[in-house]
Computed example of a mutant assay.
Amino acid sequence: MQLFRRAFAGEQEAWVYVIDIFQPLIYPWLRRVRGTRSDFIDDDDLTTVAHDALLKLRDSANRIPELTAGDDLRRLLAYLRKCTISEVQTLFRRRNRLREISYITDDTPDGAHSLDVETRRVLSQRLQEVLSEDELFVSEHIIR
């Protein structure tokens, strides 16, 4: 627990040891999930999700001091497992969205992107009514 406390306090060397010691613990959890969804998780994803789960644990530990209270690792490791599952779910949602976008893009007939000026204006107004500022930014700068 002392190592975690030092890492969460920002000590870089302690954080390196936390990653070296506890990241391998995360991999079996992820491999069980990958066994059922191997099309979604590759080896690079395993490393990314494990790292993101540790970062999520760090952020949570700074907000929830009870996680590092005492010297019992069980509570902290159980929370790390929850963080790992949460990160896998985030990855699945992200991949599903990308597949949906890819499906829509692939299914769009040629010439469908060339809308007349009036249709573009009406569509733009409607998007401004229903989308948040961030969503508008994405639609204007990335999707087009």
Results as ranks from 00 to 15, higher is better:
residue 31 R to S: 05
residue 13 E to F: 00
residue 95 R to L: 03
residue 91 L to D: 05
residue 67 L to K: 10
residue 53 A to H: 08
residue 56 K to L: 09
residue 94 R to G: 08
residue 78 A to T: 15
residue 53 A to R: 06
residue 23 Q to L: 02
residue 45 D to C: 09
residue 46 L to I: 11
residue 123 L to C: 07
residue 22 F to C: 00
residue 34 R to P: 01
residue 74 R to I: 03
residue 55 L to S: 03
residue 105 T to W: 06
residue 103 Y to A: 15
residue 19 I to Q: 10
residue 91 L to N: 07
residue 94 R to E: 14
residue 63 R to F: 01
residue 100 E to A: 12
residue 72 D to Q: 11
residue 64 I to C: 06
residue 47 T to Y: 06
residue 42 D to T: 08
residue 114 S to L: 09
residue 98 L to H: 10
residue 114 S to K: 10
residue 83 C to T: 06
residue 84 T to E: 02
residue 73 L to D: 10
residue 82 K to S: 14
residue 14 A to T: 00
residue 15 W to Q: 03
residue 113 H to K: 07
residue 51 H to M: 08
residue 91 L to K: 10
residue 84 T to K: 06
residue 64 I to V: 11
residue 35 G to Y: 03
residue 37 R to D: 10
residue 62 N to A: 14
residue 114 S to T: 11
residue 118 E to R: 12
residue 75 R to A: 15
residue 75 R to F: 09
residue 80 L to N: 05
residue 51 H to P: 01
residue 53 A to L: 02
residue 46 L to M: 14
residue 55 L to P: 01
residue 83 C to K: 06
residue 30 L to V: 12
residue 118 E to Y: 06
residue 94 R to I: 06
residue 88 V to K: 05
residue 92 F to T: 02
residue 62 N to K: 15
residue 55 L to F: 01
residue 64 I to P: 00
residue 97 R to T: 15
residue 67 L to H: 04
residue 60 S to N: 14
residue 90 T to S: 13
residue 94 R to W: 04
residue 94 R to Y: 06
residue 27 Y to P: 02
residue 83 C to P: 02
residue 25 L to F: 10
residue 15 W to H: 06
residue 99 R to D: 15
residue 103 Y to D: 13
residue 99 R to E: 15
residue 123 L to P: 02
residue 86 S to L: 06
residue 21 I to A: 00
residue 100 E to N: 07
residue 80 L to S: 03
residue 33 V to A: 15
residue 45 D to R: 07
residue 97 R to P: 01
residue 115 L to A: 12
residue 89 Q to H: 13
residue 103 Y to M: 10
residue 105 T to F: 07
residue 64 I to D: 15
residue 48 T to F: 03
residue 119 T to R: 10
residue 85 I to D: 12
residue 87 E to Q: 15
residue 37 R to P: 01
residue 84 T to G: 08
residue 53 A to G: 02
residue 112 A to M: 07
residue 59 D to S: 12
residue 116 D to V: 01
residue 45 D to F: 05
residue 53 A to W: 02
residue 42 D to M: 05
residue 67 L to E: 03
residue 35 G to T: 04
residue 78 A to Q: 13
residue 118 E to M: 10
residue 118 E to Q: 13
residue 104 I to L: 14
residue 109 P to H: 07
residue 89 Q to K: 15
residue 107 D to M: 12
residue 101 I to C: 09
residue 98 L to W: 08
residue 38 S to N: 11
residue 45 D to S: 08
residue 34 R to K: 14
residue 110 D to E: 14
residue 98 L to C: 08
residue 64 I to Q: 13
residue 30 L to E: 08
residue 48 T to K: 12
residue 120 R to W: 08
residue 83 C to D: 02
residue 66 E to C: 04
residue 104 I to C: 09
residue 121 R to D: 13
residue 83 C to Y: 02
residue 25 L to Q: 11
residue 35 G to I: 02
residue 37 R to M: 10
residue 61 A to M: 03
residue 92 F to R: 03
residue 124 S to V: 03
residue 70 G to W: 02
residue 34 R to T: 09
residue 54 L to S: 01
residue 110 D to L: 08
residue 98 L to F: 07
residue 14 A to K: 00
residue 35 G to S: 04
residue 90 T to R: 14
residue 48 T to M: 06
residue 102 S to R: 15
residue 56 K to G: 12
residue 32 R to T: 12
residue 109 P to E: 04
residue 111 G to D: 06
residue 61 A to Q: 07
